[in-house]
């Protein structure tokens, strides 16, 4: 199944539940290399869960995921999810990075060490080289002067920039952004969204962005997914979804969030 026509990310019939609560109810999705996808929808609709499953923070019960032609989650004959051998699972997982709503910076490390720790100890990059590269990423997010500070000394927006630099330093092919502006003061949101748009334009990574900012989704992404009750209800170009959605539920959702 290693044909070149296979999309970069291929998700088939993905199911995930917590106890009786079904959060993902059969997700099917293909994403080509380098695409920037915004994921919108009401809270509890499964957007974040999809990202967490892709990052292997949660294990699905049914369905499979393939990344770059290799199985991150395999499926057995009954459609149940099977994990690949641990070393292959980890190797594949290392091609994916994630930025979290609550930053999750390491409080006991300086900003620069936050960025270099994983390259040095996971990828085996020499420390000096990792530092030079780390400084470049910090520069890219506009925080080169904070390299020696500790996370506690930064504002929320600065913390989130460090978290982005930290994820970038691992050279992920896929980046997952889970509501990364939700914990920020309103005046800091714009800068982070501009940074995201800038990263997207480079086309170096495939990006999945869960967001509540409709204007950002409409203007900066290649494609928009509308999640509702554990399924992808709508999938298309931002222009189409925001101007002429197919479903009544999408219209209601957009009306309610755009009014605010």
């Amino acid at each position: 199944m290693n044909n070149t026509a296979e999309p970069f990310i291929q998700i088939r019939n993905l199911h995930k539940s917590y106890g009786d609560l079904k959060v993902l109810r059969g997700i099917n999705l293909d994403i080509p290399l380098g695409e920037m996808v915004s994921v919108i929808g009401p809270s509890g609709s499964g957007k974040s869960t999809l990202l967490r499953v892709l990052m292997t923070l949660e294990r699905p019960e049914r369905g499979g995921v393939r990344v770059g032609g290799e199985a991150l989650y395999d499926v057995n004959a009954e459609g149940g999810t099977v994990l690949p051998p641990p070393d292959r699972f980890r190797a594949l997982r290392n091609r994916i990075g994630m930025v979290f709503q609550h930053f999750n910076l390491f409080p006991h490390m300086s900003v620069l060490r936050n960025v270099t720790e994983a390259p040095v100890h996971v990828l085996g990059v020499p420390r000096e080289k990792a530092k030079a590269e780390g400084l470049r990423y910090l520069d890219e997010v506009g925080l080169a002067d904070k390299a020696d500070a500790y996370p506690a000394q930064l504002s929320g927006g600065q913390k989130q920039r460090v978290a982005i630099a930290r994820a970038l330093a691992m050279h992920p092919e896929i980046m997952l952004f889970d509501e990364i502006t939700s914990a920020l003061d309103p005046e800091l949101v714009g800068g982070i969204l501009d940074l995201l748009a800038r990263l997207g334009k480079k086309r170096e990574m495939t990006m999945l962005i869960v967001t509540h900012h409709m204007r950002f989704a409409e203007q900066s992404s290649d494609r928009v997914l509308f999640f509702d009750d554990g399924v992808i209800l709508e999938d298309g170009k931002p222009g189409d979804i925001f101007t002429q959605p197919e479903h009544e539920r999408t219209r209601n959702f957009l009306r309610s969030v755009l009014e605010i």
Partner: peptide
């Protein structure tokens, strides 16, 4: 969140 960040960065 600290464990999750570590997983996302590939730490064993």
């Amino acid at each position: 969140g600290q464990r999750e960040a570590a997983v996302s960065l590939g730490f064993s």
